[in-house]
Design a protein around this nucleic acid. Sequence first.
RNA 1: UGCCCUGUGGUGUAAUUGGCAACACGUCUGACUCUGGAUCAGAAGUCUCCAGGUUCGAGUCCUGGCAGGGCAGCCA
Length: 561
Amino acid sequence: MEENKTVKQTNFIREIIDEHLKTNKYEGKVHTRFPPEPNGYLHIGHAKSICLNFGIAEDYNGLCNLRFDDTNPAKEDVEYVDSIREDIRWLGFDWGDREYFASDYFDKLYEYAVELIKKGKAYVDHLSPDEIREYRGTPTQPGKNSPYRERTVEENLELFEKMKNGEFNEGDCILRAKIDMSSPNINMRDPAIYRIKKATHHRTGDKWVIYPMYDFAHGLSDSIEGITHSLCTLEFENHRPLYDWFLDELNVFHPQQIEFARLNLTFTVLSKRKLLKLVNEKYVDGWDDPRMPTISGFRRRGYTPESIRNFADKIGVAKRDSVVDFALLEHSIREDLNKRAQRVMGVLNPLKITITNYPKNQTEELEAINNPEDETMGKRLVPFSRELYIERDDFQETPHRKFHRLAPGREVRLRYAYIIKCEEVIKDEQGNVIELLCSYDPETKSGSPNANRKVKGTIHWVSAHHAIDAEVRLYDRLFSEEFPEADKEKDFTEFINPNSLEILKNCKVEPFLKDAKPGDRVQFERKGYFCVDTKSADENNLVFNRTVTLRDSWQKLLKKG
RNA sequence: UGCCCUGUGGUGUAAUUGGCAACACGUCUGACUCUGGAUCAGAAGUCUCCAGGUUCGAGUCCUGGCAGGGCAGCCA
């Protein structure tokens, strides 16, 4: 028997690693890390990076660390640390006891800085922030040396010590690497290594008033942890020479930084700043709003970790920036839920029907299949009676030419039950259809020998007396534009889909759902995949979130006209 | 107008490292169906950004263009 395991596609990163393995650059070791800054919630773009880093470690029998890049106390918070841990765990990855913080290395990093000063490779600069910017030059013009650049080692040592001891104010001075103010790479124009920030750090408290900059802290943290392959996004490409410079000057273990393109997704935005705006300005209901592209949002929406991991595999990794079709994500979740989700009948917009020739007060228990894709999930009984609810749009008074569900005088099968015929349409004074009177054909009960008469359509239903009330939240894409950030004149919030959430209050679902627990996922047949909301649902109040619709060739047909 | 990176069907990735372009999503047909779902069968769509060059042979190598992205935080 052939293993039908999905073959992991190779990519340029794996090729580099293979090469390193061949040349024994890191003695056969592969050690990665996922290094979030705890200043926001993780989103699907981070999921790509998480899957990449943990996935590679796993495939190469290596390890992947979790390291919080917490070098800026002004922006970071423990709330984010907690959410990040939860999200990674939920995705199914385990960093064992290798949970680190850049702040764990502050002492070591300070020593490294001192070492650089001693080598004459760093100096304390008293230029103001404005002056520094001025001295830096521009991409096309070289910068010029700071007047403080030639301070002696002793002077720098003393000044840096004073910085550490809080003898200067924020902005008075910084520690800079001494590299080359005329470098075509701006990152090499004497970049800042340490700045003064008199803020309380979420872990080190008030121990420090100086904090290392990303470029300094990140590479050295990688080095300290013995990271072999430091994967990051494209915007750090120009930082690699600096990453290498620190490691070389300090003569320490030298990881290989490799850059890849960050994820972009149609119909969504994925920048922390913009996501924060959506949250702060209440366009959505928090970081875990089911419309948010955050991991917590997808979780609450009903996405499975597996579907997100499969998605990450499918999109691959490369260096060119690209935009992934949101449909691929939807495909991933449908593919997963199709195999696993319990089928159930739920009527979202109920229309009452009465089977006039069905005995009053009679109830039948009809057998229904829990998942046609998975026999082991078995069957259940669904109560049937004289009064039922069907979906409003499964009836058309004057049917579209290709509509093959219920219409006056027409027949349709009630799933797992009988074929019925619409005999009479009852309307209120305004002319709204409020009820249908139907007849049923007792010979056509599902499973019985004479049941095989063909009708054009099968619809779902729920017994009026047995139904459970539920609220259903129909979520759709948050943005109505494929590229919400493309318009330079308009803010991306102008493209928020006004119909991204529709709340249905009096839905009727089959009694099977009476024991549904928050987080449970089901398929409402013919409608889509739904999950019980984890925040607003309780025992007397069932709330379902729509994860994704089923593929709908009827809607497609309608669009074509 | 400096430096760095990237250009392969509509979209995302492949191509045994120089051997006549593949997979997935999407789209379209058809079959099947007690979910207009799923499944199955099939189709269309890329002369690999352009122009030269090397070679028996180039998406892969060379040269020159063009296009897109990134970089001037005491953010990461």
